[in-house]
Design a protein around this nucleic acid. Sequence first.
DNA 1: CTGAAAGCGCTTACAG
DNA 2: CTGAAAGCGCTTACAG
Lengths: 345, 345
Amino acid sequence: MTVRESGRVTIHTVAKVAGVSSATVSRVLNQSDLVASATRERVLQALEACGFRQPSRLARALRTNRTGILGLLVENVANPYFATVARSVDDAAQQAGLAVVLANDDGSAPGGVERLELFETLNVDGVILAPWAGDDRRRQVARRLASRGAAIVVVGDYLDEKEFDLVGVDLRRAAVEVVQCLIERGHRRIGYVGPAATTDRFAGYQEAVRDAGLPTFALFLPGAPTTANLASLMEQELPGFISGQRLTAVVAHSDFYSFEILRVATARGIKIPGELSVIGFDNTRVAELTAPPLASVEIPKVEMGQMAVELIRQRLDGKVTGGPVRHILPTRVILRESVAGAPPT
Amino acid sequence: MTVRESGRVTIHTVAKVAGVSSATVSRVLNQSDLVASATRERVLQALEACGFRQPSRLARALRTNRTGILGLLVENVANPYFATVARSVDDAAQQAGLAVVLANDDGSAPGGVERLELFETLNVDGVILAPWAGDDRRRQVARRLASRGAAIVVVGDYLDEKEFDLVGVDLRRAAVEVVQCLIERGHRRIGYVGPAATTDRFAGYQEAVRDAGLPTFALFLPGAPTTANLASLMEQELPGFISGQRLTAVVAHSDFYSFEILRVATARGIKIPGELSVIGFDNTRVAELTAPPLASVEIPKVEMGQMAVELIRQRLDGKVTGGPVRHILPTRVILRESVAGAPPT
DNA sequence: CTGAAAGCGCTTACAG
DNA sequence: CTGAAAGCGCTTACAG
């Protein structure tokens, strides 16, 4: 219990200066009300004198089993949708004194597992999964995290999530509306471009197109949905997909996909919306600026981030307990010039 | 030293199962070569049997004074430039087994100080400052972090950084080139729109314009450079700035600024580039997609992120020691349709 | 090659 | 109201 002369300032340094025990310093730091005000005063002065700022989160965490760290798993922050969610999460976390560890997984299961295991070694208090490609390997790690007391919340779609808290939007329904919009405007050959058939968006697209008695056309792009990957895959596959199926409209998985569709189509001389209408999801700021502006589905990105953090806090404080909570937020189709055809009158 | 029955699996649990001491388990975990291979085998099996994944970073960090955590301070991840840098940093960090704590500070000093203090409580091994609005209060915290052994690296401009490592670009020079491009194309009334006069970009703009014997015009927008803020400030100030000064071209601090200039100008019926040329910095993907496509200065965002992480690793490994290191990467002016006027022949 | 022991910087019953 | 002590989960000289 000797006080070291050198190195870092700890509560022991402060205790020595104040002439009290480190326990008392700790109590002052933790706003405990069982410290005499004279003692508190002395400790406060010693804190100042030593230049002690904040107790080590690591040491505190080791003792209390609370790290104040949140893990945020996104597909790709370079995608403006995830960037906006990340910003919102970070703001809410900072306000709550929580730190955010960011991880990108490109939507891949092995990557996601690794990142979740990273969160595990950090003993995070909560995890935000945006999105949650809920495959088995990931789910297993998530369960382990949950069993250690971490609050897990899925942000985005995945309406069939039953195990963890969800702050989401009904993208299946939104996709149905999108398709109906296109049909109302005269489109009969409507394609879908996205990562896979397992999303709510594709399900909604498929349902609506089939209900209208129309054929479905899907282009699924494998691999990581990064700009570089999408760009090269689209260059290879998109023109053939459009002309081969004689599509007049395409529903894109997100604005991030729409951007590349727009880029490739423009480069190939395919007129948007003259020859092809395009509509995506996320309604990121950029969608307003493209040539032509891109129709999209508004998703409350900022609100979702805030609610996710709030939910984690409530779980940690025991204000929310029991089975999974579901918050489903509203979406809205935003038509812009990238969609051709007049609405029915 | 009793082994707990309940709760989490620690190296003690594993040690008991393997019939060895926890020190031995630790040695196996740390690839120490002074473990008999038979013992190692038994420990490995016990590890598996107990479902022990990774040692707690917190406990390890407390002991070794190495957390494997990197702090990344950006202005705003919702800005595609920072998002791309963040993605690159995260990739490099993941590969090195490091965790990245993200913090946004909106370029404000108080915010920045708070975020840096958060990094301090986490005992981060390294800090990436992108950008580094090197005011005194921040610098003080950064020094404290450095004195505790954290490797600090500034990413971006700020060529006058003398104290910390820098992975940057010469944006002063790039701004000079940008202005020269505009002058060559016949522009004589060239304005600047940015956050403040203290940037390398503005310095370069000013230098080049003055050297050409032309008047300088600056619009500095106060407050956080978020989309919402920039949007409303631009709506108020930009039209008057352009018409009042009869500008034919504007140099924007970044694509993020250009986007809002484009949006406001378009909404007000100001033709780009017919009535106003616009050029920014960062060359984010979006700049290719806007109407019209935006001229910009290419900055090697991905490379900068990678180099910053690499530099931190080298510092931590003692492969780089001594005074501040400077890596200055090349930039390139990318002209696009948002700039009017033919080059001289 | 292996274990017992100390200690990283905190918190918190427990006793007084 | 305050302090001594134990302990969170690890690592690492030290001794054998």
